[in-house]
């Protein structure tokens, strides 16, 4: 039973950390965006204020069962995926369930939230939501292709489908996978542009034509809960990339409070650096139309992925 207690504690700790980091990153990005735009910008904790405000709205509107549970789906997807992703390599403080799931599971589980969101948005009956959802799903088909190519390349190259093993391989060999298969990394990086939905791939909720897209009818606690899920998700995506390509964080040989803190520090540095890629791209580009975005992903990100896969096989 001690083991179970530790696991629950670890799960809660992980969730809180992911939430806090995701929200803070969002705030920092808002601040940086403001600086780029010649502005002072909101404080870095602005997202927390927004969240508390949304949660303390006195009245809320729900559009039926799916509309009511849409945020629940997102939270389920985010926390479940978080549980199956190694945060720190071999650290006791974050003992997730990552030995019980693998990449394929994570790939599919990440869709769970989108599906829930899509269903919730669908039930509201707002045409903007439906159009936003079709755009989002169509674009997903676009960026999943290079992403999966990259992942398959990794899996084939190292004969494992477990993220933990991939981390361990990088730890033992001392070489990050970004160097051993740069093409796969590039393909995945381009896919990440679509995943984070910054410009030019933010057509899903393009305000110029769809108001807030799928979120059009969600406000108050629903929007707040979605925001929570979203920030956990952004942390998940970043951690996944770091685990897969940038050697992960943490050192299984050193266990203890200082090693953990150092590990978290490394993780934060790596994830933030990675996060800046789509953000930088987003600052300076208008958005693509849906079909342009899809074709973009099927263009040379996919070609890079194929090269990466061939590199991995031969």
């Amino acid at each position: 039973m001690e083991d179970l207690g530790l696991k629950i504690f670890g799960a809660i700790l992980t969730t809180i950390m992911a939430f806090a980091v995701g929200m803070t990153y969002g705030g920092i990005v808002r601040k940086l965006t403001a600086r780029v735009q010649n502005r002072f910008g909101p404080p870095f904790y602005q997202n927390f204020l927004d969240l508390v405000k949304l949660q303390s709205k006195k009245t809320n509107i729900a559009h039926g069962f799916m509309g009511h549970t849409a945020p629940v789906w997102i939270i389920i997807a985010s926390i479940t995926v978080l549980m199956f992703i190694p945060i720190l390599n071999g650290n006791l403080w974050f003992p997730n369930l990552n030995f019980h799931g693998d990449l394929i599971f994570i790939l599919y589980m990440m869709v769970f939230g989108s599906l829930g969101m899509a269903l919730g948005a669908g039930q509201t009956g707002n045409p903007n939501s439906a159009i936003g959802v079709t755009r989002g799903l169509s674009m997903m088909v676009g960026y999943e292709i290079p992403f999966v190519l990259a992942l398959v390349a990794l899996m084939v190259q190292y004969h494992t489908t477990s993220i933990q093993d991939l981390m361990q391989i990088q730890h033992e060999s001392g070489t990050w996978l970004i160097f051993s298969n740069p093409f796969a990394f590039l393909a995945a990086l381009f896919a990440s542009l679509g995943m984070f939905r910054y410009s030019p791939f933010d057509i899903v909720g393009a305000p110029a034509e769809l108001a807030s897209g799928p979120m059009s009818e969600f406000g108050g606690k629903y929007l707040g809960t979605m925001m929570t899920g979203g920030s956990i998700f952004s942390f998940i995506k970043l951690t996944l990339y770091v685990d897969l390509f940038l050697g992960g964080a943490g050192n299984p040989d050193h266990i203890g409070i200082w090693a953990t803190l150092a590990g978290i520090g490394v993780l934060l540095i790596k994830t933030f650096t990675l996060y800046m890629v789509p953000v930088f791209y987003g600052w300076v580009s208008p958005r693509y139309r849906t079909e342009q975005a899809i074709r973009y992903f099927w263009g040379w990100p996919t070609a890079l992925g194929i090269i990466g896969l061939i590199w991995a096989v031969y």
Binding site: K57, N60, A62, H63, P71, I75, G125, N126, K221, T225
Partner: peptide, 22 residues
């Protein structure tokens, strides 16, 4: 989560039809 989202502000939550959209 479903307990949280259902119980939080239960009184202030109104379930509306699909005609009531913006």
């Amino acid at each position: 989560v479903i307990l949280f989202i259902s119980l939080k502000g239960y009184k202030g939550t109104r379930n509306v039809g699909t005609k009531e959209i913006s």
